[in-house]
């Protein structure tokens, strides 16, 4: 979707903060950050962040569009909400992180092969197809995401768990061939389409189904 990215670049020029405020879920909170850093220290994934939330907010204000949208950091958020409950300014940091990730994804700027992003896409595709998650198919898609050999390796490592699940009747190999879905699949698709339309209208995008990588 390079198009959308160019459109947005054009529209907001140097004002990345405004772009975030208008396009990102809860983006209008970014300006309220007072740079105390409690979110950065509170994050359970802390040591792995390249840019802490507070820093991302500062980068947004400083207009570092490219760096922010291509960052891995917001994809690390596990929604533990530690940062949010501690934020002295009550910023919905978790939501902003997800909003930024989603926006970066939409613009096609999110890092390639970002595991969280890949997983999310696989999950979405899997569950929206029939209205239910097909665990077997999903597991296989995730395992084989990085190629055949690495997929086999992963399966081998976790073989005992698979066996356990099978005997506990939590894993049905037949599901590989026959996915059972929800009752009104068309209804679900219509609902999703409607949701897409609503969001696109709110954010000013051209309507496009999401979940499919460019």
């Amino acid at each position: 979707m390079g198009d959308l990215n160019t459109q947005m670049l054009d529209k907001y020029r140097n004002n990345f903060l405004r772009e975030v405020e208008e396009k990102v879920d809860d983006g209008d909170w970014v300006k309220m950050c007072m740079q105390c850093g409690v979110c950065a220290g509170s994050c359970t994934f802390g040591p792995d962040w390249e840019h802490t939330p507070q820093k991302i907010f500062m980068m947004i204000r400083a207009g570092k569009r490219e760096e922010v949208l291509t960052s891995h950091s917001m994809w690390l958020c596990t929604s533990c909400y530690n940062c949010m409950v501690r934020c002295p300014r009550k910023l919905p940091i978790t939501h902003i992180m997800h909003g930024l990730a989603s926006y970066a994804h939409r613009l096609g700027l999110a890092p390639k092969n970002q595991p969280t992003r890949d997983f999310s896409m696989i999950f979405w595709e899997n569950c929206t197809k029939t209205g239910r998650v097909n665990e077997l198919k999903m597991t296989i898609s995730v395992y084989f995401r990085e190629g055949f050999v690495s997929g086999i390796k992963k399966m081998w490592t976790l073989r005992n768990i698979g066996r356990g699940l099978f005997f506990a009747k939590r894993l049905n190999p037949l599901e590989l061939f026959v996915s059972h879905g929800c009752k009104d699949k068309d209804g679900l698709r219509r609902a999703l389409k409607k949701a897409d339309e609503i969001e696109a209208r709110r954010r000013g995008y051209a309507v496009q189904p999401r979940g499919y990588s460019s």
Binding site: L17, K31, M32, M34, Q35, M58, R61, A62, R89
Partner: peptide, 14 residues
């Protein structure tokens, strides 16, 4: 007052 300014979009940079 500081918060109000942020709400109005004043940018604060340390």
């Amino acid at each position: 007052f500081y918060r109000s300014a942020q709400r109005k979009g004043v940018i604060f940079t340390k």
